Simulated scan of single mutants.
Amino acid sequence: MPNYSPSSASAIVADAVSGSHVLKIEGYSLTKGCGTGEFLRSEIFVIAGHRWHIKYFPDGVVSDYADWIDIFVQRDDDTDGKDIMARLWISLLNHDGESVPSHDIISSQFEKYSPKTARGCKKFMKRKDLEESSYLKDDCFSIRCHVTVRNEIRTFKTRTLVDVPPSNLHRHLLDLLTSGKGGDISFEVGGETFRAHRYIVAARSPVFMAELLGPMKEKAAACIRIDGMEAKVFKAMLHFIYTDSLPNIDEDEIVGMAQHLLVAADRYNLERLKLMCEETLCKSINKDSAATTLALAEQHGCDGLKKACFEFLTSVDNLKAVMASDGFAHLKSSCPSILEVLVTNLSR
C-alpha cells in the first residue's frame, strides 16, 4: 500500500457573461431641447438574465452639463431583488459600427447594481463636437452599451483521475546506503567504517568528485580514511548526500551537530548543507555560544551567521556576557580581525 495520502483538488470559479445593445438616435436635432435632466429611453434588452435600458440625455443630466450628451444604463429588474456586479463600456460608433477611441468609456471595475440602479457617463460628448463630426450623418448617430455581469463566485470539488505520489527517490537511495548493496567504496572515520557508492558520493560533492573520479590517488582506492571528523558527523553528512536531508537528531545535540556539520559541509563543498547548518545556528545564538559561533562563521565564510552574531552583540548586556565567556578568548586568538569589525559595528 502507498505510504502517502491521496491528493484532492478543488476549483474557485469566477466568470462573467457579456452582451451589448446598440442604440441609434434618428432625428438627433429634434431630440435637443428636451431639457436638462430629461431623457429618452431605449427598448428593454436582456443581458445575463437581467433587464436593462439605456437613458439618453440630449441636454445633460444637470445644468452644469447642459452642453453635453449624457448616457446612462439602468438595470430594469422588478422581480429579482438581488444585487449584481457589473461593468459598463459605452462607445460612440462610426459608420462601420466600430468604436470611436476618443469616445470610448470603460468602467475601471465592477460595480454593484441593485434592481433599479443606473450608472453611466456624464459629459459623454459635447453636442457641438458631435454636430461638427462625421459621426453624425443624416441627423443620426449610434452608441453601443456593452454590459459585463460577473457571476456568483463558486467553489466545487474537481476529480483527480491520476494520483501521482510524491517523489520517494530519497528513500530508495537511503535504503541503498543502509543496506550497503552495490557499495564500491568504504570510508574509515573515527574507528567506524561506512560503505557507500562512489558515483553517488562523487555526484554530490565536487571534492569527492576530484578524490574518487579525478586524478587524485584515492581514485583507485577501495577504502579512504577521513581524519578530523567524528563518525556520527560523517554518518549524518552521508545521510544528507543520499537524501538531501538530515537524519533525526536529538534536541540537545542539534546545535553541536550543526556546528560540526557546517565544518564538514565547507570541507566537502556541500553548499546546501552548509546553509542549512548556518540557518540552525542563527536561531540558536546565546550568551554562551555567540563567541564560538562568530569564530566559526568567520573561519568558514558564513556571512549570514556573522550578521546574526553582530546583531546579538549590539546589546550591551549580551556583549558583556560574551566577553566574559570562555569562547571569547578563543575568538580573540583565532580571529583577531573580526574584533575590529565588531568594534566598528558597535561604534556606528
Rank of each mutant, 00 (worst) to 15 (best):
A324Q: 12
G304N: 12
F110M: 09
K287H: 04
G304E: 10
K126H: 03
R348I: 05
I71F: 06
C34K: 14
R198I: 00
A297P: 00
K116S: 13
G304C: 09
S102R: 12
S42P: 01
T117D: 08
C282K: 06
I44K: 14
F208G: 06
S102I: 04
H95R: 11
S205P: 00
N318T: 04
F234P: 03
G183E: 01
C302W: 09
E253Q: 15
L319H: 09
I71P: 01
K307T: 12
Q74L: 04
R225A: 12
R150L: 15
R159M: 11
Y268E: 03
P115L: 07
N151C: 15
K219C: 12
L30G: 04
S284R: 07
D64W: 12
A9C: 14
T293S: 08
E340Q: 15
H172I: 03
L339M: 09
T292R: 12
L30S: 13
N168L: 01
I25G: 01
L313G: 11
G19T: 04
H21L: 05
A118Q: 11
P165G: 01
T160C: 14
L92S: 06
S142V: 10
D326A: 09
L174D: 00
V164Y: 04
E230S: 13
Y113L: 02
Y56V: 07
C223M: 14
D138C: 08
E131W: 09
E38K: 15
G327W: 02
G33L: 06
D303P: 00
A265F: 07
Y56T: 07
N168R: 01
S205V: 13
N3S: 11
K219T: 08
K274M: 05
D244P: 06
K137H: 12
N248P: 00
Y199P: 00
I153K: 15
H172Q: 10
F194P: 01
I47S: 06
F124P: 02
H330K: 13
L88E: 08
I249K: 03
L30A: 12
I200Y: 05
L212Q: 05
F124K: 07
K116N: 15
D227P: 02
L213D: 07
R198V: 02
I105L: 11
L130K: 01
D83S: 15
M216P: 01
C282I: 02
E131K: 14
A118I: 07
A202G: 05
S18D: 06
A236F: 04
Y199K: 11
L319E: 09
S10Q: 10
R154A: 14
G190C: 02
